[in-house]
């Protein structure tokens, strides 16, 4: 859509705008990375240095040896992956049921599911806590996995429903006519076409589980079961702030999610465009 006559000023405006946007979005990350690679004395130096004069991994070493960060990291991985597996399993099956079988009340159910999306965790955290207590699941990872799964479900169901709906019924029927069992038809015909949706749903679920603070704060008390957000917040509160080390923790937490996003950005924008994400 370039307009040749005004091309230059237009390009300048675009690049200036782009630079400002990049600075606003990414500079805090750059500053986090830079601080995490500085020695303590340089962290507090005035004037501050943009790029560390002496690169050091000392902050990361301290983080991994002197704190429980590695444990929190492991816990977060466990909980997040378990949540992804459970959520995808439950929501794929459910969404398939919603699109391929007719039964009375189907649309009502779908609308009701969307309605639960309107309830923020903070609105149900109290009874949720009491319920988990009654089930004897307080201070277990299972409680976290169940809560994240529940809060990801409405979104994933709707997202996958949209994807399944977009897979032409005829394709599946053709496979069935050819004598394939329904399971095989789904496996070979429907899932491959809905895969971008499944990946997007998986990513969103992972991010939600990886980032959650409230449930982890309320449901987990033992240090050895804590996930990253609460663990790092405790680390931040428990000592004189060791900014280098805290920034190292930030870098370590950010890497997996940024990596994921970079890898599957394509799927993501599509999935996003078709549903929206909680947060």
């Amino acid at each position: 859509m370039s307009r040749p006559r005004r091309g230059l000023s237009r390009a300048t405006a675009l690049y200036v705008g782009g630079a400002v946007l990049a600075l606003w979005a990414a500079f805090p990350f750059f500053w986090m990375l830079s601080t995490s690679l500085k020695e303590s004395s340089e962290v507090f130096a005035s004037p501050p240095t943009l790029v560390p004069r002496h690169l050091t991994l000392g902050n990361f070493a301290r983080l991994l040896t002197e704190t429980n960060f590695a444990t929190y990291f492991g816990n977060s991985l466990t909980v997040s992956f378990a949540t992804v597996v459970l959520t995808l399993g439950v929501s794929a099956v459910g969404a398939y049921g919603l699109t391929r079988f007719r039964f009375p009340g189907r649309e009502t159910i779908a609308a009701l599911i969307l309605l639960t999306y309107m309830f923020a965790p903070i609105m149900v955290i109290i009874p949720f806590y009491i319920l988990v207590k009654q089930l004897g699941l307080v201070n277990t990872h299972l409680a976290l996995v169940l809560s994240y799964t529940t809060f990801c479900l409405p979104f994933c169901l709707w997202l996958l429903r949209a994807f399944f709906q977009s897979v032409p019924l005829e394709l599946e029927e053709a496979a069935l006519v050819d004598g394939a069992h329904r399971g095989r038809a789904v496996w070979h015909v429907v899932l491959p076409l809905a895969l971008p949706g499944i990946i997007a749903a998986g990513i969103f679920t992972f991010i939600l589980a990886w980032n959650d603070f409230l449930f982890a704060l309320v449901l987990i008390s033992s240090d050895e079961l804590k996930t990253l957000p609460v663990g790092v917040n405790d680390l931040f509160n428990a000592t004189i702030v060791d900014w280098g080390m805290i920034m190292a923790a930030g870098v370590m937490i950010t890497l997996p999610t940024v990596g994921f996003f970079a890898g599957v950005q394509r799927y993501l924008i599509r999935g996003w465009g078709s549903g929206g994400l909680k947060g």
């Binding site: 709707w158 949209a162 994807f163 491959p192 895969l195 971008p196 990946i199 599509r270 999935g271 078709s274």
Partner: peptide, 16 residues
């Protein structure tokens, strides 16, 4: 949902 439906024909999954 107004945001724009997914259009399956343009989706080419790379990951099998």
């Amino acid at each position: 949902n107004q945001i724009g439906r997914p259009r399956p024909r343009t989706l080419a999954p790379r990951l099998s």
